[in-house]
């Protein structure tokens, strides 16, 4: 289970001339729950946008199971992107469609299942995230947490190998976000999927992450990578210690 699934090599991200992060190199192994962490505005979500193919890197490349994403032709890219499911920060459900249609759309587009089979798959995916029976609801009729879970059901519609989560616990109460963390762990264990999570929730980072990368806004690069617990125990970089301890360290100050 240590086969590298995603490899990021020498990645430099920039908006025009403004460099967000440079020289990012790390590996996400299969079955990992990989955390992208760092303070606000350091480029976590931008890194995610690069990894899911929404933004082209200024320099460097991203490989999925050894296959380059940005060097590849359009057909390969579509194939690679279909291996990924993405849960956007606010769910990003299509507001003109009911939940069942939201989850069913990728199935309609990419599989040859008939309507009844799709309906079965949809109700299973909704049940998986605890939304059984909500298929006829529209996104605007749901609470934020439910929208997020519905977004997860949609992200899982095509049984992706890799799931990306952009700030899954943002805007959720501690208990809901705990449930979501449990769900993420459960999905990794039962589906064997690789999961990449962008978050700055310390509780989530330590509860679910087994590998991570820390981005820093000031130096505009990654400061460390590895399991979060090991980072907390071993890493001597003050910025990381402060981050992982909510700033409650006086002894490690520079």
């Amino acid at each position: 289970m240590t086969e590298p699934d995603i490899t990021v090599r020498d990645l430099t991200m920039a908006y025009g001339d403004v460099v967000i992060q440079r020289d990012l190199t790390f590996t996400v192994n299969q079955g990992d729950i990989f955390i992208i962490m760092g303070g606000s505005g350091c480029g976590k979500s931008t890194l995610l946008r690069h990894m899911i193919g929404l933004k082209e890197p200024a320099h460097g490349d991203i490989h999925f199971s050894g296959e380059s994403f940005w060097q590849a032709d359009d057909e390969t890219r579509v194939r690679l992107m279909r291996r990924c499911g993405v849960l956007f920060q606010s769910g990003a459900l299509w507001s003109s469609m009911s939940l069942a249609e939201n989850v069913g759309l990728p199935l309609h587009e990419y599989t040859e299942l008939n309507d009844k089979q799709i309906q079965e798959v949809v109700s299973f995916k909704l049940a998986l995230v605890g939304l059984a029976g909500f298929g006829d609801y529209y996104p605007s009729e749901l609470s934020g947490g439910m929208q997020k879970r519905a977004g997860l059901a949609r992200a899982m519609a095509l049984d992706p190998d890799i799931l990306f989560f952009d700030e899954p616990s943002a805007g959720l109460d501690p208990i809901s976000s705990r449930h979501l963390d449990d769900l993420i762990l459960e999905l990794r264990d039962s589906l064997g999927a690789t999961i990449v999570v962008v978050t700055h929730e310390l509780a989530s980072i330590f509860a679910i992450g087994n590998n991570s990368v820390f981005l820093d806004a000031d130096t505009k690069t990654m400061l460390a990578s590895g399991p979060p617990h090991a980072m907390l125990a071993d890493c001597g970089i003050p910025v990381i210690q402060q981050f992982l301890r909510r700033g409650e360290v006086a002894s490690v100050a520079p």
Partner: peptide
Amino acid sequence: PQGAQRLIHLATVIPERQENMRLR
């Protein structure tokens, strides 16, 4: 397989709430 058992458990642990079914 273990994974399948867990998924089935996850999908059935929260019962379908009947009042949620829209009466169209």
